[in-house]
Simulated scan of single mutants.
Amino acid sequence: MKLRYHIVVALAVGATSVASVAAEIELEGSRLIVSGMLDGSALPEFVMHVNNSRIRTVMFDNSIGGSAEVAEAYAQAIRSKGLSTEARGQCQAACAYAFLAGKEHRFGRGGQVNALLIPLPRKPTQAELATGGWRSDEARHAAPPAPAPAAESVNVASAASASASSDAPASDAGPAPKEAWMPGKGILFTSSPTFFGRVYNTYYCDGNQGADLSRCERMSDADPYKLGVLTQ
């Protein structure tokens, strides 16, 4: 109980401190660090750096919020270069979608609590978790459709224009992504440091919990490695 309390407090504080910060890009050797909201403001700079052959990993550091269209532009750039991704601290909604586009995706190292919130319209069943259905049919309503095979390099102008289309009408496949990506609603994967190594937990949050993540429902048999959410 005490461990979970500390997780909840750390996540609530982290969410409060980064929720409204616009995206910032920082180059650190072969690693590109993205922090803040994926609102499209830093997308051209991101794509420019991704097209640099030195980049091997994109780290999302405390990134909460953003539009589905911008998330897809980030994801397309990551896929086109076969980059790995890391999530350090908070990574929610748009960030989670871009994070999962990595060739390999893992939580960042260090003493912080890491949390990945993947938006979903409802709690998946155990059968969907076992078969991967929660990442296909259901995910289709919570994330934009997968793109066509990417070209050798990403065009900055076309990627940036994607950020301006967040008010596009919904398709027949389901509700518009901006409607499905309810704040705080989806599966929450957490990783917390302890004296005995990291502890991983999974919760389903219905979006009504606000900053009180203790109201999220603990999920069993939802190990992030078994589900392919983390690969390393």
Results as ranks from 00 to 15, higher is better:
Arg215Leu: 14
Lys178Gly: 12
Pro124Ile: 00
Ser192Ala: 15
Thr125Cys: 03
Phe107Gly: 02
Ala142Pro: 02
Gly207Phe: 00
Ala160Ile: 06
Ser166Arg: 06
Asn114Asp: 13
Cys205Leu: 07
Arg140Lys: 11
Gly110Val: 04
Ala173Gln: 13
Thr202Met: 04
Asn114Gly: 03
Ser191Tyr: 08
Ile118Ala: 14
Ser171Cys: 11
Ala148Ile: 01
Lys123Ile: 08
Asp206Thr: 12
Pro224Ala: 02
Asn208Tyr: 11
Lys185His: 14
Gly184Gln: 03
Thr202Ser: 15
Pro224Ser: 03
Cys205Thr: 06
Val154Gln: 02
Arg135Tyr: 05
Ala157Lys: 14
Ala151Ile: 04
Val113Lys: 02
Pro149Gln: 01
Leu129Tyr: 01
Gln126Trp: 05
Thr131Val: 12
Gln209Leu: 12
Gly186His: 04
Asp137Thr: 11
Val113Ala: 03
Ala139Gln: 02
Asp167Tyr: 15
Ala180Glu: 01
Ser214Pro: 02
Glu152Arg: 06
Ala176Val: 08
Pro183Cys: 02
Tyr203Glu: 04
Phe196Gly: 10
Pro121Tyr: 09
Phe195Ser: 13
Lys185Asn: 10
Pro149Glu: 00
Pro144Asp: 05
Tyr225Val: 11
Ser166Lys: 07
Gln126Asp: 12
Leu116Ser: 06
Asp172Phe: 15
Gln126Cys: 09
Ala150Gly: 00
Ala115Trp: 01
Ala173Met: 13
Ser192Gly: 13
Glu217Ala: 11
Ala130Gln: 14
Gly132Tyr: 11
Gly184Glu: 04
Ser192Asn: 12
Glu128Ala: 10
Ala157Cys: 02
Gly110Asn: 06
Ala222Lys: 07
Glu179Lys: 11
Phe107Leu: 13
Val229Arg: 04
Ser214Glu: 01
Asp167Gly: 08
Ala146Val: 15
Thr202His: 06
Gly110Glu: 08
Ala159Cys: 03
Gly174His: 06
Ser158Leu: 11
Ser191Phe: 03
Gly108Asn: 04
Phe196His: 13
Lys178Ala: 15
Pro169Arg: 00
Arg109Ser: 15
Ala211Cys: 05
Ala150Gln: 04
Ala170Gly: 10
Asp206Phe: 04
